[in-house]
Design a protein around this nucleic acid. Structure first.
Length: 188
DNA sequence: CCAAAGATCGTG
DNA sequence: ACGATCTTTGGG
């Protein structure tokens, strides 16, 4: 599988700030998806849904998961590769009350944006955010990269049935906001 | 047209 | 281990 540029992008997103609709977090967990050469990537098949990944980098790919969650991805390019990075977890830094309003009163701070569905919800994302350019300070945007590189651990991606052992999930070592690993029941 | 599979999450 | 919930996808 080619396309390890996306791995560099994934790692550099760790520690970077990510803001959505009034809530800012620090990204603690991501997964790289290689696009046309990665059987686990939605862009492995070029369809209406994955078309955004064949476009301009630094745009937001939003998709609905299991009919009830949204997941947020940063399209990283190059365009012919259609690669993207799934933002899986973060530590809420600003707008905690708003995040709690969206997630519910009983959720612990560390769990507000723990896991991709929860993260999208804490940021107040909707399908209307699909295609947002992430470097222009719009409703959803990426802040500057981390000042110092965090300590990173790698492992297999969560929930994928194809290429289930490719270690393209990256997280900040020891961070309490990182989600638990769950292997797909369909993975060989 | 229909069936099945999801880049999930909370509960038990 | 299981169910909620529904869109997208691929096969016939």
């Amino acid at each position: 599988m080619t396309g390890h540029e996306v791995v560099d992008h994934a790692r550099s997103l760790l520690g970077r700030s990510f803001r959505g609709h009034g809530v800012t977090l620090r990204i603690t967990e991501v997964e790289a998806y290689g696009g046309v050469n990665d059987p686990a990537s939605h862009a492995f098949s070029r369809t209406a849904r994955s078309e955004i990944m064949y476009g301009e980098p630094w745009r937001l790919y939003v998709y609905r998961s299991y009919g009830m969650h949204l997941c947020l991805n940063v399209v990283t390019g190059p365009t012919e590769q259609a690669a993207a990075v799934l933002v899986r977890s973060g530590e809420v830094l600003e707008g905690r009350e708003l995040a709690r309003l969206r997630r519910g009163p009983t959720v612990a701070d560390a769990n507000l944006a723990r896991g991709p569905g929860n993260l999208a919800r804490s940021l107040g994302a909707t399908m209307d955010d699909l295609g947002t350019y992430l470097l222009d300070g719009e409703a959803v945007w990426l802040g500057p990269a981390a000042a110092t590189a965090p300590d990173i651990t790698a492992g297999p991606r969560v929930g994928v049935s194809k290429a289930a052992d490719v270690p393209w999930r990256f997280w900040i070592t020891g961070d309490p906001t990182v989600s638990a690993y769950r292997r797909s029941p369909r993975a060989p």
